[in-house]
Design a protein around this nucleic acid. Structure first.
Lengths: 194, 194
DNA sequence: CCGAACTTTCAGTAACTTCTGAAATTTCGG
DNA sequence: CCGAAATTTCAGAAGTTACTGAAAGTTCGG
């Protein structure tokens, strides 16, 4: 491995972190390297800096492309492929969340919906279904929230995150100031239901 | 494997999902089984239902305990250990987020802080440090938000998530209605700075 | 449309993880 | 404080994933 010390520390750390993630060490290292690099790198650059085989880099880049985590670039008069990460780190976050949702949440939601359609054949199955419904509803709430904030531009998103739970204060204020009579199911309606 | 069909489907799915996560198949299956089960289960119950070895279950439970994902229980007049997941799914979410933060974010933050203290020895290192600073600031923002909402009780958290980006509307309203003159750094101050 | 430059694929092997049965250890009722 | 019940540890077998070098495939300037 042939890297400046600061870069190497980070690259090694990300390699190890990768393993906690279902991403392998080399893929983690390639990504870290690209993330830190000012200039786009080609496969051979990566081979030299990380000291792994050419084919390993090829596989790793393929995987990163499957995750939409790297951009392809072409330099004029150079046939090699160059790779970068987006300059905007928020773009990276968005992609990561999107892809993880696609691979982990969506298939689970599909399965939950299927299983929730079936008739439980025993008390045990009935209880299991109830638990699955809780998970289903949880995921629905979370993905709904995600779909919502995902559309915000970065400034507003940062603003929202910076506020954190202080939003709560504003909510309470709103609750006290306005009662929206036509709303489908307000908290006040909840109380009436009991 | 000796389970009602609905339960089996879910357990198998979670086993596979586990692998995408750095958690192994058996651990995923044990967790899924405990999650769905009304009654606490002991190790031998799990062995029978999943059809894996006793020692494998012992290891798996140990790992789940390290993640704080299962509760130990004792039945009077029975020396065996019984295990459950919390009834409240939000408690499970909180634990998961907490533990992942502890294992993935915190060590990375430590490393980033260390590396950001050092003097860059080249233009390359200077740029790399800048990128690391971006990541550091991003993580700081996210963990700050997390620390904030994590303190909310479940009802309020659900309320907040249900609102999603509609909060934005309220924010804009607030911005228009109130100008807080003594605030450290409002958006209006930002504009003046330029 | 040749051939050099570059990339991808792939079979085999190395490295690592998971899983098991057996043995060691702990726990606790009697 | 013995011994049966329960749990944990552990060494090695089985299974899986990562990695390599060699070969096949692709691209494109001349």
């Amino acid at each position: 491995m042939n890297l400046p010390p600061l870069v190497q520390t980070f690259v090694l750390h990300f390699g190890e972190m990768g393993s906690r993630w279902g991403i392998n060490r080399t893929v983690g290292q390639i990504y870290a390297l690209l993330y830190l690099s000012k200039e786009p790198l080609n496969a051979e650059d990566i081979v030299e800096r990380l000291g792994v085989s050419r084919s390993n880099v090829s596989m790793g880049l393929k995987e990163l492309q499957a995750w939409n985590l790297v951009r392809h670039q072409h330099k004029p008069g150079d046939r090699r492929d160059y790779f970068t990460t987006p300059d905007d780190i928020w773009q990276i976050v968005r992609t990561l969340v999107e892809e993880r949702k696609k691979r982990e949440i969506d298939p689970t939601m599909t399965l939950l919906r299927e299983v929730l359609m079936q008739e439980p054949a025993s008390a045990e199955e009935r209880h299991a279904q109830e638990r699955m419904r809780e998970m289903h509803d949880l995921f629905e709430l979370l993905t709904g929230w995600y779909a919502d904030v995902q559309r915000l531009d970065t400034d507003r998103l940062v603003q929202l995150l910076t506020l954190g739970s202080k939003v709560q204060k504003i909510l309470e204020m709103k609750d006290r100031l306005f009662v929206v009579p036509g709303s489908k199911k307000s908290r006040r309606d909840d109380l009436k239901d009991k």
